[in-house]
Design a protein around this nucleic acid. Structure first.
Length: 226
DNA sequence: GCGACAG
DNA sequence: ATCTTGTCGC
């Protein structure tokens, strides 16, 4: 295949093409501060499989105003799930869910990694570059190439790879494993720390993401009954 | 003691 | 993702 044909919005691709897209589009990721006043609205997205389909939920919430919108998207599975290629598996369904929203928040929190990815182009970064919207990756496990380094805050560790820091690991609750926030697109490490303070408090999961995931599981449960 | 590579 | 017991980990 001619590499120039591969685009980040091409989902039905081979493993080799997917890898090509990741290694070539990682440079599109922008590291920039996301001011705290721009974190006042949030869209959370999460996805899961059921019977050769991927279902995705997108939730938009305002921080200071009562606003809640929740949408479901779905797509047939083309690219099978593989570690490191989650975007190609879930991307289409998630985009569809986002498109249903009347309003997308100023930042999108994505269930999956951003730069905490072998080629620094995980699902959150992929969606961020596609939509050119600030994104943050949220996950509950690290990929093995990443490491944790102590930070001034004993509850927070820097997530690093050979190139440097890509995110933060946060120990909250009394859960053993930390949650992992990594840079998706148009954010920086400081923005992640502000995000934690603003949207997570001392909880392990931001409320909108928790809402999206429980709604998603509810949908899946209903489908299994039929 | 059976795993430990996002979902 | 899900199933599901148990509780940190080498």
């Amino acid at each position: 295949m001619h590499p120039t044909l591969a685009r980040p919005h091409a989902w039905d691709v081979s493993l080799e093409q997917a890898q090509w897209i990741q290694t070539n589009y990682r440079q599109k990721v922008i590291f920039s501060p996301l001011p705290i006043e721009q974190q006042n609205s949030l869209t959370a997205v999460a996805a899961a499989d059921w019977a050769d389909r991927v279902f995705a939920v997108a939730v938009t919430v305002d921080l200071d105003r009562p606003y809640l919108e929740i949408r479901l998207g779905t797509a047939t599975t083309t690219f099978p799930y593989r570690t490191g290629y989650l975007a190609f598996h879930q991307g289409p369904a998630i985009l569809q869910a986002i498109e249903q929203l009347n309003r997308v928040g100023n930042v999108i929190i994505v269930k999956g990694h951003g730069l905490a990815h072998p080629r620094r182009f995980g699902l959150a970064s992929h969606l961020g570059v596609l939509l050119d919207i600030p994104t943050i990756g949220y996950a509950q496990a690290l990929l093995p190439h990443n490491e944790l380094q102590p930070s001034p805050n004993p509850l927070v560790f820097w997530v690093t790879d050979a190139e440097g820091a890509v995110g933060v690991a946060v120990y909250t609750d009394r859960v053993k494993k930390p949650c992992i926030l990594s840079i998706g697109h148009r954010v920086d490490l400081e923005s992640l720390l502000a995000f934690i303070h603003l949207w997570m408090k001392d909880h392990r999961q931001p409320a909108p993401l928790r809402l999206a995931r429980s709604f998603l599981r509810q949908q899946l449960r209903n489908m299994k009954k039929e």
